[in-house]
């Protein structure tokens, strides 16, 4: 119940952040969200900047070019967009770690089940992908060239697709052995 309420609160806050256009309100909300982290406010601010700043900076520089380098005319749009993106990122980093998504989605058992299985596989695959990347780097005495990188990408993709097919079969057999599909008969 708590998780669902938090998720709804987060979604409402994101929607609110996209309909408020006054930079003062957006800035105040960003300050409140960051300050609510207490002693970890600095860490939160740093994470938000690292995640959102490249996007904001790229758009800001582009918009500045479009406006012919005129800061005064470019500033209102940049201020609004930058604060909005930073606020939404801060909300995600502040609220989402506190939510158990499977519990929040308990109203749909199928979605919850798929999500739990998919997330566990995603985390395992992410780790395996890092291992593959490190293995390629370790085995390459020189910088990896385009042809090797392309071959590595293709064989990695094929490996994950084959592994996905295999895991689907194994999971189905494991679930079947535990009586998961009995109520479908």
């Amino acid at each position: 119940m708590r998780d669902r309420a938090l998720l709804l609160l987060y979604l409402a806050a994101v929607v609110a952040a996209s309909v408020v256009h006054d930079p003062r309100w957006l800035g105040l909300a960003l300050f409140v969200v960051t300050a609510s982290a207490g002693r970890r406010a600095g860490t939160l601010a740093r994470r938000v900047l690292v995640a959102a700043l490249p996007f904001v900076a790229a758009v800001a520089l582009g918009w500045l070019l479009v406006e012919g380098g005129n800061w005064r005319s470019a500033l209102p749009a940049l201020e609004r967009l930058g604060l909005r993106v930073l606020l939404m990122t801060a909300l995600a980093f502040r609220v989402l770690p506190a939510i158990s998504l499977p519990r929040a989605l308990s109203a749909s058992p199928t979605l919850r089940f798929v999500l739990v299985l998919a997330t566990s596989q995603v985390l395992a695959f992410r780790r395996l992908f890092t291992d593959f990347r490190l293995a390629l780097t370790a085995r390459s005495p020189r910088r990896v060239g385009p042809r090797v990188a392309l071959r590595h990408g293709a064989s990695t993709a094929a490996w994950f697709l084959r592994r996905a097919e295999h895991d689907a079969t194994t999971m189905t057999e494991a679930l079947d052995a535990r009586g998961f599909f009995l109520d479908r008969d």
């Binding site: 199928t110 089940f113 798929v114 299985l117 998919a118 596989q121 995603v122 395992a124 695959f125 992410r126 395996l128 992908f129 060239g145 385009p146 990188a149 392309l150 990408g153 990695t156 993709a157 994950f160 697709l161 592994r163 996905a164 097919e165 895991d167 689907a168 079969t169 999971m171 189905t172 679930l175 079947d176 599909f181 479908r184």
Partner: peptide, 26 residues
């Protein structure tokens, strides 16, 4: 669906889609 593998297949296909997006090319 009456196919028992449908749900696990969707879950691992999701993980595979995620893994494919990690593949970088020069």
């Amino acid at each position: 669906t009456l196919e028992p593998a449908a749900v696990p297949k969707l879950a691992v296909a999701t993980a595979a889609a995620y893994a494919l997006m990690l593949v970088t090319i020069p």
